[in-house]
Amino acid sequence: MLQQVVWSAELEVERIVDAYGTMLFSICLVILCNEKDAEDVVQDTFITYLTKSPTFNDSEHEKAWLITIATNRCKNMRRYNIIRKHMDINDLQLYSRNDKHHDLLDHLMRLPTKHKVVLLLHYVEGYKVDEIAKILTITTSAVKKRLQRGRELLRERYRKENEYGF
């Protein structure tokens, strides 16, 4: 009986890491710009999941819960890391093998946390404004403003890059 429980727990670890590990790691890496911090947050999020074992309606609910926990932890970590670390663009190739994405990832990582989080949830995870509002516990108008400002900032940075020929 005990063996069955252990086996079942191991399967659950495999399942959640395989299903959500890369998704959470990519979000956390973009938010935190640091591999070790991103790994810590993702691992901590999974441990919370297994410890709390919340009840979910479906897999989307489960995914949203994990994203909520992970982004909250990222925000806390950013809050306490007074000296902001930023990943060198050359290190991006360790995680993203396709060079053509590195510029965009670099620009994205340099955005303020609150803007990049909404951009990630909207453009990467496909959440609608009202769903993001629930996940981040902010108003829908705040989500819209952050999306708009995030887009403006990205545009602006691309424009400057082209102007000065970086």
Binding site: T22, F25, V30, S96, R97, L105, L108, Y123, V124
Partner: peptide
């Protein structure tokens, strides 16, 4: 953005 972020492994 989606292509870029999902290229992270």
């Amino acid at each position: 953005i989606k292509d870029a972020v999902t290229s992270i492994e």
